[in-house]
Simulated assay, not measured.
Amino acid sequence: MRPIHLQIAGLQSYREAQDIDFSALTGAGVFGIFGPTGSGKSTLLDAMTLALFGKVERAPGGTQAIMNQAEQTLSVSFTFELGHALGVKRYRVDRQFKRGGDVSVLGSLCRLIQYRDDEAIVLADKAGEVNQQIQDILGLSMADFTRAVVLPQGKFAEFLTLTGKDRRAMLQRLFHLEPYGDRLSAKTAARFKETDVAIRALQAEQQGLGDASQAALALAEQRLGEAREAARGLRERLAACERRAAELRAVRELQRERASLAARQAALAAQAPRVAQLAARLARAAQAERLRPLVRRRSAAEAQLAQQRGVARAAAEALGAAQGALAAAQAAHAA
């Protein structure tokens, strides 16, 4: 960020409007602001911070007691440039405040402007929108800006007098690097502990290996050969046992099958009387089946005989009636 122009009025010791043109100063790339203590050097940085973020880093609450006691309004306008891949972009931030109490102030105007082809374009005109736009443009929050760009007053002299560990701690505090240092220390301690545990494990394993001389190696090879021979014998015994186990499993299966057949035979034997009864009933049924035509013919003959008997009975009754009629006719004739 390159400062171009700063205008302040009513800010701390700057009661009257002040215009500061940085164009001539920034031409060389580096410039300094010098003056006795209390001359307002830090107020210029406060004015830039107030214009960009609406707060002053060293003021209580960000805005308490920043207005000159003899004034009722405070204004600040800051023009700056930022370099981009497409070129340089120029912005201007305007803010105005009015007194809200003895030490408090209230924002009355806030505006962010971008210059494009000598034309001023308003990007935002509300405090929240301006703050967000500034953070997006700079890529820094107010805390980041005051730590990385604006070094707080008195911290630089303190930093120069520090050495070694104290200087590293100071840098950590300035740039809020304590969490990273703590995590690095914790990670280093954990790595050291893991390495120490691994070393102890290797030492214990080395002690467990014992003597590694030629004689010990030869003895170990001899024991290895004996162990291999014993393992070969055990494998042969294992194969024999597996074959025997297979034979015994086959025998057990045959015994189970035999027991099953015996049980089935016993069940069939228990059903023999009932089977004999069924066979006798079947024989009688077959005999009855052979006699069924005769029974049918007998039944038909009996029905025919009964029918003929009925006819004969009817004829006898008709004959009796005829005889009675004849007798009556004869009697009538005789009379």
Score class of each variant (00 low, 15 high):
Leu151His: 09
Arg258Trp: 13
Ala329Leu: 01
Thr188Asn: 11
Leu319Ser: 11
Leu138Ser: 01
Ala327Val: 07
Ala157Glu: 09
Gly310Asp: 12
Gln18Asp: 03
Leu305Glu: 13
Gln271Asp: 10
Ala321Tyr: 05
Asp21Met: 14
Ala306His: 11
Gly61Glu: 00
Arg99Phe: 00
Asn68Ile: 00
Gly100Val: 07
Val56Gly: 01
Phe78Ser: 11
Arg116Trp: 08
Ala259Arg: 04
Asp182Phe: 13
Ala246His: 15
Phe159Pro: 15
Ser13Met: 02
Ala285His: 06
Leu50Ala: 05
Arg281Glu: 15
Arg235Asp: 12
Ser185Val: 10
Ala124Pro: 06
Ala190His: 11
Arg167Tyr: 03
Gly324Trp: 03
Asn68Phe: 00
Ile121Asn: 05
Thr43Pro: 09
Arg297His: 15
Leu138Ile: 01
Leu326Val: 08
Ala120Ser: 13
Asp196Lys: 15
Glu119Ile: 09
Arg200Lys: 08
Ala215Val: 12
Ala218Phe: 07
His5Trp: 15
Ala288Leu: 11
Thr43Cys: 03
Gly128Glu: 06
Val30Asn: 07
Gln255Ile: 11
Ala328Gly: 00
Lys89Gly: 02
Arg249Ser: 13
Ala127Gln: 03
Ala286Arg: 08
Asp125Arg: 05
Gly40Phe: 06
Met48Cys: 03
Gly38Ser: 01
Val130Trp: 03
Glu253Lys: 15
Ala266Lys: 10
Asn131Lys: 10
Ile199Gly: 05
Ala263Asp: 15
Arg111Met: 10
Ala335Arg: 00
Arg191Trp: 02
Lys155Cys: 15
Ala288Val: 09
Thr163Gln: 12
Ser77Arg: 15
Glu236Lys: 13
Phe97Ser: 00
Leu177Asp: 08
Arg274Val: 14
Glu253Gly: 14
Thr146Ala: 14
Val130Thr: 01
Tyr180Arg: 12
Glu16Arg: 01
Gln307Ile: 14
Thr195Asn: 09
Ala143Arg: 08
Arg290Phe: 07
